[in-house]
């Protein structure tokens, strides 16, 4: 395994960014970078994603959530920083950065990433309780994804209905690991963990010998019960509660709800 030379330079840039971010607060006027030509102010230590979100500017993302440390896996937030690709959720903001976000080139890549997520799982929106409130779906609308493009994988993934109050439908999992973070960092329970390898192996492991959620101390009041951006972790007996037309992303595109909605 090797790292390409270009990656080394990206790393060098990023390291430089980090070093600068760690410096004591500089004068506020200097703490501005450019995102698609727009001035974005930032506090030292913030990532590009954090600063943009705080400012109300949308950078597409799925695995990032303002309450948790960056996971960096979905790659939807890939931007070009001074001409180089990188994840905006992990790159520190620094003065004068020139960041490209919603360019045709980047949105094309993001659309392809979304298509990859749609074909690797079983995403049947018409029969999903999360439809209309789903970050994956809303992001695909935002990026004008008209088809899955690739051949479908139709994987065989299990549903876990063992818990009295919560249903787990892994057919819709996008491996964002937000449930892992929420259960670990907020609930202090460590019920979920992303393990396994590769397309077929990678999955959320449940912390019980049976692998069933019912055999854990998971509760419907846990932060992890409401964190899932897609329709994997769902409360039982509460499907399709909001009529079509009034659901979160019926009201406005995800890009117009940067501060209002958590993904």
């Amino acid at each position: 395994m090797k790292t390409s030379n270009s990656e080394v330079s990206v790393q060098a840039n990023a390291r430089e960014a980090r070093v600068k971010a760690d410096r004591p607060a500089e004068t506020k006027a200097n703490n501005i970078f450019q995102l698609d030509g727009e001035d974005i102010p930032f506090r030292p230590g913030q990532t590009i994603m954090q600063a943009a979100t705080h400012h109300g500017t949308y950078i597409p993302h799925l695995c990032w959530h303002p309450d948790f440390s960056a996971h960096g896996s979905c790659k939807l937030c890939t931007v070009k920083v001074n001409g180089r690709f990188g994840s905006s959720c992990t790159i520190a903001a620094q003065p004068g950065l020139d960041v490209e976000n919603r360019t045709a080139e980047l949105d094309d890549k993001r659309r392809t990433l979304l298509q990859m997520l749609f074909v690797e799982g079983n995403h049947f929106c018409p029969s999903c309780e999360k439809s209309g409130n789903c970050a994956l779906q809303a992001t695909a609308y935002e990026l004008n994804m008209m088809s899955p493009h690739f051949d479908m994988f139709y994987p065989d993934r299990p549903v876990d209905a063992s818990h009295p109050d919560i249903l787990l439908d892994f057919n819709r999992c996008i491996m964002c690991a937000l449930c892992v973070a929420a259960s670990r960092d907020v609930d202090g329970k460590n019920i979920f963990y992303m393990g396994g390898r590769g397309l077929l192996g990678r999955r959320v492991h449940i912390s019980s010998e049976s692998g069933k959620l019912a055999d854990t101390d998971f509760a419907v009041t846990d932060r992890a019960a409401s964190i899932c951006p897609v329709g994997v972790i769902l409360p039982k007996r509460k499907g399709f509660a909001v009529p079509i037309g009034q659901r979160t992303y019926d009201l406005a595109p995800i890009s117009k709800q940067v501060r209002d909605t958590t993904p």
Binding site: L76, V119, G198, L199
Partner: peptide
């Protein structure tokens, strides 16, 4: 590569399998 992708990020997890296919 499809066998060895760790599966963490979307482009590699799905992309290596698409390329193999």
């Amino acid at each position: 590569f499809a066998h060895e992708s760790c599966g963490f990020c979307t482009p590699c997890r799905v992309g290596t399998t698409l390329v193999r296919n």
